[in-house]
Computed example of a mutant assay.
Amino acid sequence: MTIQAVIFDWAGTTVDYGSRSPIVAFQQAFANVGIEITEAEIRKDMGLDKYTHIHKIINLPAVQNDWQARFQVLPTSDDCDRIYVDFKAILLASLTNFAQLKPGMPAVIDYLNSQQIPYGTTTGYDEEMLSIVAPIAANQGYQPVVNITSAQTNGIGRPAPAMLELACDQLEVTDLTQVLKVGDSINDILEGQNADTITVGIVEGSNLMGLSEDDFAALSIPQQALLRAKVASQYEAAGADHILLSMSELPALIDAINAPVADL
């Protein structure tokens, strides 16, 4: 087999260790209307486009109960729209602080370029968010050929395969079974499965792990090991084809996949 292309996610996969920027923005936007939400409630549906994610959060039973207790009515679509506008403003204001490439990415970029393997992205960001993050990433050497948002697929985001299929089409990929989809959430894995690509889950710095680089480094060695195992088990349960501790292991994985099978 020969890998024809690699399709990455953004936050938590290639930039923003721990996928912190959306968490901060979601919590602040809901706090601004008096509703407290936990990281676990947010991370459950990470990987969706942000507007759909707002709707998922606001329809959680705990959030519905808190909203009704506070306002004596259930939230409406207009409430979702207002929270989304606030969320987006908060996120846009903070994205420049969360656009640093994750450890291992510079070497991965060099490897893909040297092997002439094209790469692109699918993302829960929208175009305005990407317009902030992409130039900062480009200054660090990360320049995906294509960046696909749900606006380009008539609002159809992950876990459906539409964005991934469009990315591959624009890269002129002829066989999606020879594409790697690399992500840091369960929705990334499901997206890849639905498009019939090879799925790769990244453990460290992922949405599933949820810790900043400093917070992870502050854990004891046994605590780090337990957390890595927990995240890996979630990818395994979702059916990921490959689970990598960090992005630095990706070149070796591609070499192994591309290696010719010995004659029997």
Rank of each mutant, 00 (worst) to 15 (best):
M163K: 03
A238P: 15
H53P: 08
P222E: 07
E39M: 05
N32S: 11
I254G: 09
V182P: 09
I136H: 05
A25D: 08
F216A: 08
A218C: 14
T38R: 01
V33L: 12
T38Y: 02
R43L: 11
G34Q: 01
D255Y: 01
G120E: 10
I156M: 12
E213Q: 15
G34S: 11
D81T: 09
A262D: 14
T153R: 04
V231G: 08
G210F: 02
I83C: 08
F30A: 10
I221D: 15
I148L: 07
S77Q: 13
Q170P: 03
I148E: 08
A69F: 02
Q100R: 05
L164M: 03
P260S: 10
Q68V: 03
A252E: 13
A151M: 04
A232E: 13
L112C: 07
C168P: 14
A162L: 06
L264F: 14
R82I: 04
C80Q: 09
G124E: 04
M129K: 04
L74V: 02
S233D: 08
L91A: 13
L164V: 00
K50N: 05
M46N: 09
V6Q: 07
D66Y: 01
A11P: 15
Q223V: 08
G210W: 01
P144H: 06
I83Q: 06
I7E: 08
G12Q: 03
I90E: 05
S185H: 01
Y111E: 09
E191L: 03
G183S: 13
D9G: 11
G18H: 04
A69N: 15
T96H: 10
E127V: 03
K50I: 03
V15N: 14
M163L: 09
Q193L: 06
A160I: 05
V6I: 14
